[in-house]
Write a protein that binds this DNA or RNA. Structure first.
Lengths: 202, 202, 202, 202
DNA sequence: AATGAATGAGTCTTCATTCAT
DNA sequence: TATGAATGAAGACTCATTCAT
């Protein structure tokens, strides 16, 4: 029986999410290096020791934060792939969706664009592994575009993926560093236009 | 008298550069968080205390590292602007030049693309300020392209700059994380082509 | 009514012994400092909290372990005193019996000779109090030996007891530290001979 | 040049001994498990961090304490072996010397007989390695006694060593646990007599 | 200018014990 | 009785910076 209305998985217990959410807020407010476990515990309303009933160590909290939040981007993109028919439209909705998620959660934006990058190489490698799922979906869009004749045939998928992701990431980071003072989502059409022109046929 | 054959500027004393170079090596070899002041001093062949005769504190070393090394990119780009006549050519040579500098100094590549990003927000803000000079030159290329009719008129310069820099940065970082196993400079034409198509006229 | 076929004494309930036995195994396998209450509970097949229904605290478990296991040595020695007629024979059988008990229960040997000694001064004082019963029986052997003219009159009983117990203990500990690789019981005759010569008449 | 009037060895710097001596006092007064590094530093009159300029970690302090103090016993015994001609006399002076050292330094007595035994198995193994030097000298006494015809030929040296050391150790520990209320050195003749009778000829 | 010994603030993690169910 | 999730106190160690020489 795989689907039960109750669960013993740590991830499904309320305190798991409570701690994840607290971590996002504490990191966003205090910065990565000032996000002590005790601060996260306090924000989550639990004792320090309770953290360790749900996470192996501090790094595990941070990876889980990224994992949980990244899944929002991934699920978003999966939905887009199902609902759209054209690769160019998928690309547009991916950019727009990405910007929307960040715009709607300022704490999350700070954490993913600025703070989590201060982690050490080990953690960043793990984060990259999580990111891969998202990039794989982007690859699918590109493949479909080529197959359907929307995009030029001779583009290097790996490189194009880097151009698109690099652009989205840089635009997002700049927006966060400018303290989110302008409308990020409003930039989606322009970003899409530049990127699309770079790869589309004719 | 701006040019004197001797100087009392700290920057011109041999130990200043000795320490900067030591810092790059130590950070590349050990990672940002394992680059202790004492390690840098040892690598530079000076006493720990001597560091503080040339730098205010550890952050000051790191900013100076970025400043000194970034100037290579800036000078490179300034030369390109002088030697080229067409914006699209300038863009190509900027990309190629950027990749070349990183390819020729593996230590520098690791430090700028991976390790220095682990610094805290304050340091990153200062790094961004230094970066501005480079981005300003990129803006000049874009303005010239529009003026000369090479690039479409309605592009948002700030946004386009982010697309271009984001792409260069992402491609560079991916190359470093793949342990520099392939030829980065060889990717310049493809990167240029995609970016150019996104902004050029007709 | 001292003997009832049922009992409300904690010591007589099955879980009491279950926990004691679990503690010996956990301490022997993991070492004193790695013998957490939760590990003992798991080994005993009860919940952590249940431990505290049978023992006041962790120290109480450890004292009880020693008490329960020490009683084997004491009962053994009491039997010997009843069955033997000569003090020198009693001494021999005491040494042999002591070695036998340790040889037959490797877990117990590790716990009493190595692990329990890592306890703090308070616990060791309590352990010494328990040990007293055993040492009192040894005193009786010595007194009888003097009375019967087997042992020299002018020996200091307290000191002699320390010599005998110190020897048995050191030989046992060395054997455990050498990972019980040789036959401890086989050493009884030699140990007895040396000790006996030190105190016997003529 | 092996002998210089000055030295760069850590062991010869005044703070090394300062910390060792502080550790003995703190452990004796507070017990092994309450001997925090910060307490030792305070007692030694140095900063916490200074400890780590002279010792690798806390365990290293404790091993060094034992090493430095054990050397008193060893040097003592080496002197005895040189000055004495008869094995039985050597044995007497060894026992007496051992008791004297403990009697003259109450802190040391508590630390070696009680507190240091609470260390974990790893540390105890290292302590045993240090102890070996002392036991090797004891072996030499026994060998000489057999060779000279003072001791019976058929004794097992390893076992006899355990009897002698076990006795000295137990007598010392009992004295410490009785809070050193009686004269330990005064017990040397009786201890010597019992042990000697156990191994001497005729 | 140069040295390098000394400083001391700051934090993650474990685990015995409790108590609501 | 029995459970086990939650608690929270406590401590070794690092490293940027100073300052007497």
């Amino acid at each position: 029986m795989l689907n039960r209305w109750w669960s013993k998985l740590k991830k499904d217990k309320p305190k798991y999410r409570q701690i994840i959410d607290a971590a996002v807020i504490v990191i966003a407010d205090n910065g990565y290096h000032q996000a002590q476990v005790s601060k996260i515990a306090k924000q989550a309303g639990v004792a320090d020791g309770t953290i360790y009933l749900y996470f192996k160590n501090k790094e595990d909290i941070l990876i889980s934060v990224f994992q949980e939040k990244m899944s929002v981007f991934v699920e978003n993109l999966q939905k887009i792939l199902k609902e759209s028919t054209q690769a160019s439209e998928m690309l547009y909705r991916m950019i727009e969706g990405h910007f929307k998620v960040l715009s709607e959660d300022h704490h999350l934006a700070i954490v993913t664009q600025l703070e989590l990058r201060q982690s050490n190489k080990d953690l960043r490698l793990k984060i990259n592994a999580i990111l891969k799922e998202y990039l794989d979906l982007l690859d699918e869009i590109l493949k479909k575009g080529i197959q359907d004749g929307e995009f030029v045939e001779d583009i290097d998928i790996r490189l194009t993926r880097q151009v698109i992701f690099g652009t989205i990431d840089e635009v997002s980071t700049t927006w966060v560093m400018k303290e989110q003072k302008y409308d990020l989502v409003a930039m989606a059409p322009s970003v899409h236009q530049i990127l699309l022109k770079g790869i589309q046929r004719g």
